[in-house]
């Protein structure tokens, strides 16, 4: 495995046609490496989420290319892209999107079940991941009975259960208080990130910038700055 997890080349994405055409991302190029905690920051409407969607195989760019571990993502068939998402990329959504009718452990097991793992085996493995996020004793509860921070950790457990190389977080601290937010990011940095994994976080929560290895700033669909090994950002 090379050091570059994701490479984006001149990505362009627009929505609509004619007078309603809006360009959300304008020629964005960057690299995210294994062992790196990369933040994509910028104000609302700056194109962060669109960029994130394009590099994770969810939204097809109008121009440009995305290489995931060296493979040209958007030249793949749709089923292969789905497989790549399942096997290589873990998602933690802003609203977590946990299944309220399933127990915590069943939520965590979803990627494993999608990978055709036996149900009982999937639950057994999921328990290990719940232990990692410190929620082993909450395994049989439904997500609605958990606090916001705990739900966030369940979502993280679900994202890492499939053992992905790349983890993508969309505004992980948006609905958490400052302390919990910091704890979550600290947890990501110390427990989830490793040399074989790349973590990308989209955020505009400046309170957690200190944990980033790199910060990529966006504005009006353009990457306006990229800082590596920094502790602060403006």
């Amino acid at each position: 495995m090379g050091n570059v997890a994701i490479k984006a080349n001149a990505l362009v994405k627009w929505f609509g046609e004619g007078e309603t055409k809006t360009t959300a991302v304008k020629s964005a190029s960057f690299e995210a490496n294994f062992g790196e905690l990369l933040y994509i920051v910028g104000p609302s409407g700056s194109g962060k989420t669109t960029l994130l969607s394009m590099i994770s195989g969810i939204l097809k760019p109008n121009e440009g290319a995305v290489l995931v571990e060296g493979k040209d993502l958007w030249n793949m068939k749709s089923d292969d892209i789905a497989d790549l998402r399942l096997n290589k990329i873990g998602f933690v959504f802003q609203d977590y999107h946990l299944f309220p009718r399933l127990t915590t452990i069943e939520n965590v097991a979803i990627p494993l079940i999608l990978k055709k793992m036996d149900w009982n085996e999937a639950l057994k493995v999921s328990m290990e991941y719940l232990e990692i996020v410190g929620l082993k004793d909450r395994a049989q509860l439904q997500p609605v009975k958990l606090s916001g921070g705990e739900q966030q950790r369940v979502a993280i457990a679900r994202a890492i259960a499939g053992h992905p190389d790349i983890l993508i977080f969309d505004e992980p601290t948006a609905s958490l208080d400052g302390d919990t937010g910091r704890k979550i990011v600290e947890f990501i940095k110390t427990k989830i990130l490793n040399q074989d994994r790349c973590v990308i976080i989209v955020t505009h929560d400046s309170r957690i910038y200190e944990y980033a290895d790199s910060i990529m700033k966006m504005e009006d669909g353009k990457i306006i700055g990229f800082e590596r090994n920094t502790v602060t950002a403006t």
């Binding site: 089923d79 789905a82 990627p111």
Partner: peptide, 17 residues
């Protein structure tokens, strides 16, 4: 449950699943 189905899609579930 539409958002959850969308989440499943994002995670890697295929259309036929």
């Amino acid at each position: 449950n539409i958002e959850r189905f969308g989440a499943l899609k994002a995670i890697g579930a295929k259309g036929h699943e």
